[in-house]
Amino acid sequence: MGHPIVFLILATVAVFAAIGMLTSRNAVHSALYLVLNFCTVAVFYLVLNAPFISMVQITVYAGAIVVLFLFVIMLLGADQLPKASSNGGLQYILAIFATAGLATALILQLSGFGDGTAKPESALDASPEAIGTLLFQDYVFPFEITSLILLVAMMSLIVFKAQKRKKQDG
């Protein structure tokens, strides 16, 4: 995938952004670290021959979803977190087990790529045109379902509004 140096730089940035997001005590800073992480992931998609997914990552995730996160943070006034209260030893033990399990799964999965059988770069055509053809021909039904899901989101807006109006009347 791409150039190994590009990957190494981006991987470092992505990992540090993720760590920064988790450890930052200011929720707004966490959201900004998340933007950085999303942007590096977008470049990963780009070097994996998926320009459309990359741009979706930036417009939907780094753009819209983070805007939503920031609004929730500011809605709740939760931008300053109190000092974290740890559940003591149990939390650490569970975290160690979960991390070890994830690491084992990753290593087992990735070790299969060394034998040259897996060719992720040439496996599929992810150009916008190919995605469009697939989406509107083979997967047309799931695509139409998406519009219904968007409709449900709009209904949530109306419910939001109706509740507020009721409160004002009473």
Binding site: T59, V60, G63, A64, I65, V67, L68, F71, V72, M74, L75, T146, L150, A153, M154, S156, L157, F160, K161
Partner: peptide
């Protein structure tokens, strides 16, 4: 403001 943000996401996906 949050309501407008949700609408923004919907149009984004569109």
């Amino acid at each position: 403001f949050y309501r407008i943000a949700i609408l923004f996401i919907l149009f984004d996906i569109d």
